[in-house]
Design a protein around this nucleic acid. Structure first.
Lengths: 195, 195
DNA sequence: TACGTCCGTACGTTATCGCATACAGGTACG
DNA sequence: CGTACCTGTATGCGATAACGTACGGACGTA
């Protein structure tokens, strides 16, 4: 099923270049790629090297990953409150409820989940350390209660309203030290390898 | 400053391949790229074509944009509740309060913001349509109240607890039709073009 | 009409990407 | 000890990416 996506970047480059009101030679100078090359790339007559593609992207003031991401499908997808896939994560972790709020689409770049942590509870636990794909990045926003983020040997206390951003490919977990229940939202981006 | 990022993809590919416990020939078969080529790419001795890079990514069960995005820096960054940059967005939009919860770091892949919309209020409004960078993708999670997402000519009603995912490079805005105040969180990913 | 300038594209050359094959270094088995 | 197999890497050659140059065409101006 993994059909080799036909790198449609060509038309996209042309559209972006024209949107910035640049000629081929203008972009050639900005990017360090010759104008004829740009023409061929735009018409799909050639498949540029990563470095030249990167130069083209940078000439368009974009990252190559950003440029490539433009040619990925997507529309509007709604998950209703009653359709939220709720569950209790991990066998050893009592008092931890996870609700995944984003649909399980392939190519999804962001996963949003709501976590409810009972007093004293821990996400994952020592036996099952939450650690995402290489390159993953996580944003956590504390809604209610207090938390400790333990990551890479360090412990960061968080209060309600705090927001933390960190690399999720490091082994980490959240603890609820306080007497009250804690709720937080987690945004995990990238590294969504389908299992 | 737009230093041509030295496509570090090589070591990353090797790390991912080894993480999946694949040999060069295994990945060669899965991706349709010869094993020697993979070796050269992994050691940075050559810069693959977009199509071959795409094949490699697909062999790793990733999108090329996902693969490339892995090489962006970051660590742990906390925004305290009292440090949240609060503001009233747009001149013409009364009743709309925005709190940006993520730090303004370059290379940030995700921006998390909390929005409070008074009854009848609209985000942005017709004069200032919220529309993000090409390739942007947005996730919105309704916390309280009801909303309408108007995007691309269509109107999607949302209730508390609903979560919607859509392409943010389309012109769009949120409306609060109900009698009550509405609160929602917005996650905007990618499309952070340095101005 | 004729000129200068800009546009995007077709030409021919060089550098290099990408493959098939062959090699050196490990480990397991008879 | 050799055989068989695996790993990742070094070779040689065909295909092609990328360059500099040069061309047909469109527009403005004299």
């Amino acid at each position: 099923m993994a059909t080799v996506e036909a790198a449609n970047i060509g038309p996209r480059v042309r559209a972006l270049r024209e949107a910035m009101d640049l000629s081929l030679r203008d972009l050639a100078e900005r990017s360090g790629v010759s104008a004829p090359m740009l023409s061929q790339v735009e018409r799909g007559e050639t498949s540029p090297t990563l470095v030249t593609a990167g130069r083209i992207a940078s000439g368009l003031e974009l990252t190559l990953s950003q440029l490539l991401r433009l040619d990925e499908s997507g529309s509007v997808s709604i998950v209703r409150a009653q359709d939220v896939r709720s569950g209790w994560a991990g066998t050893g972790s009592r008092g931890h409820v996870v609700d995944v709020l984003t649909p399980p689409l392939p190519g999804q770049r962001v996963e949003l989940s709501r976590h409810v942590l009972a007093a004293g509870a821990v996400t994952g636990g020592a036996d099952d350390p939450p650690m995402h794909e290489p390159g993953s990045r996580e944003v956590a926003h504390v809604q209610r209660g207090a938390l400790h983020l333990c990551i890479d040997g360090e412990r960061h206390p968080l209060a309600a309203g705090d927001t933390v951003t960190f690399d999720a490919d490091l082994s980490h977990h959240f603890e609820n030290p306080g007497p009250d229940e804690a709720t937080f939202l987690a945004v995990v981006s990238a590294g969504l390898r389908r299992s």
